Simulated scan of single mutants.
Amino acid sequence: MAKYRKKPVVIEAMLHEVNPNEPMAVYQWVEENTLGSFEPMACINGSKPYPESGISIDPRDGRLLIATPEGGIHASLGDYIIKGVNGEFYPCKPDIFAKTYDLVGD
Rank of each mutant, 00 (worst) to 15 (best):
N33C: 05
G71W: 06
P59C: 05
E39G: 10
G105W: 15
S76Y: 09
V104C: 00
L15E: 12
L65P: 04
D102I: 02
D79Y: 09
F38D: 07
Y101G: 00
V10L: 08
G72D: 05
G87V: 02
P91M: 09
N21C: 09
Y90N: 07
K7L: 13
A13Q: 00
E31G: 06
A67T: 04
G36N: 07
H74I: 09
N86S: 09
L64E: 04
E52V: 12
M1Y: 11
Y90E: 02
A67I: 04
S37A: 12
P59S: 06
M24A: 11
K6R: 14
V30Y: 01
E52L: 12
G71A: 08
C43G: 14
Y90P: 02
G78T: 01
Y27F: 15
P40F: 15
D79A: 07
D95I: 02
I82A: 09
P69H: 08
M14R: 15
A2R: 14
L65E: 07
G84L: 05
L35S: 10
E32D: 12
G36H: 05
V10T: 15
V85S: 13
A42E: 15
F38K: 07
S47K: 13
C92N: 09
T100V: 00
V30C: 02
L77I: 13
A2H: 13
V85L: 10
E32I: 09
Y80F: 10
T68Q: 07
M41T: 10
L103K: 14
A75M: 06
C92K: 11
V85D: 12
P8K: 06
I57M: 12
T100L: 01
R5V: 14
V26W: 04
C43F: 12
P69Q: 08
M14V: 02
D106K: 15
D106L: 15
E31F: 10
A25P: 01
